[in-house]
Nucleic acid binder design. Structure first.
Lengths: 185, 185
DNA sequence: GTCTATATATGGATAGAC
DNA sequence: GTCTATCCATATATAGAC
């Protein structure tokens, strides 16, 4: 129990790291500022010095993920062929799902994050665009189901403890295999 | 705003219905007894008359799902061929995922439910057994990844709003197609 | 930059009246 | 079977001292 070493200067990042870990363990709703403060060995007030509110922390934690999704969409949107565009989107989605691993699971599943997505237009658009590129504008039941399995499967699997030991590169490749099998009509 | 009609005699079931709906919307952690009581137009004390605690409600809501999982496993365990056994397990898993739809999503994703699973040995065993039947006792990375995609994909997709309009039978069939494509090595 | 103290709300839970 | 009243713990958040 060495006294909490204040590595100094990066207090904000330390709060974000602790928040990320706790969000993963207990969900956003199950994580209090007290828990974050305790993990850092500081008081809640110290946390409030770095962030205006809990919502501020949540938004800061998840912004990078949605920025990545937006980036993947923007790159894909420039591709003329629908087939190639979908391929690129899936590949980009897997890349970011693996890179963010623990964080991304919550994007698809945590009710608090779902509310956040609804609230922040920027995030909401990213998710909507993703659906359209993958399933098309007016998808039939089979496409809708396949896309739902694909997205839930990718994001859920990337965060599954069962694959935690698999290195990023290998996991990326394995998920790509699964995705190809799924969407290969 | 007609005064809350107390259909009488089924107060317990009405609490469970309200809880299920709220758990789906806000997650278990994000649902308070106050919210449940409000939705029924009663006081929290009235809810406490039907259940000892919030945990009691949670356990009662999720028990049927885990009982179904246990039943699927028990039936599958009696099948000698490993191939056929896995097929039967997947089919049974899809059947219960579709039948419970909104509830099952939380089983894979809600941190509060994850803690519940850890706490209740009966539930924990069901989940562990499911993994072993699907992936085998010492699975390689590829199998672990495929099973993770399969389970997350099935449960996540069944609860996805995008497939809400698809009838149970059709959704079951479509999910089975997805599963076959995924595990067909 | 971190602390103490505090305001205020909400959550889970119980006792006892009706 | 439902309500009022209440207890206690915890949560978010702020003010101000050091």
């Amino acid at each position: 129990m060495a006294k909490a070493v204040a590595t100094r200067g990066f207090a904000r990042d330390r709060v974000l790291d602790a928040a990320r870990a706790l969000f993963t363990e207990h969900g956003v709703g199950g994580t209090s500022l007290q828990m974050i403060a305790d993990r850092l060995g500081v008081s809640t007030s110290a946390v409030y010095y770095q962030f205006r509110s809990k919502a501020d922390i949540v938004v800061t934690v998840f912004r990078p993920v949605f920025e990545d999704i937006t980036r993947v969409i923007r790159i894909a949107a420039a591709i003329p062929s629908r087939e190639v565009r979908r391929e690129a989107t899936i590949s980009g989605m897997i890349e970011l799902a693996v890179r963010h691993r623990r964080t991304t699971a919550l994007v698809r599943t945590d009710p608090a994050v779902a509310e956040l997505v609804e609230a922040v237009g920027e995030f909401r658009d990213a998710v909507a665009d993703l659906q359209v590129i993958l399933a098309g504008p007016a998808p039939d039941p089979a496409s809708r189901t396949a896309v739902a399995v694909l997205v839930s499967g990718i994001f859920g699997a990337a965060a599954d403890p069962a694959v935690a030991a698999i290195p990023d590169e290998e996991l990326h490749r394995l998920l790509l295999d699964c995705a190809r099998r799924l969407v290969a009509a």
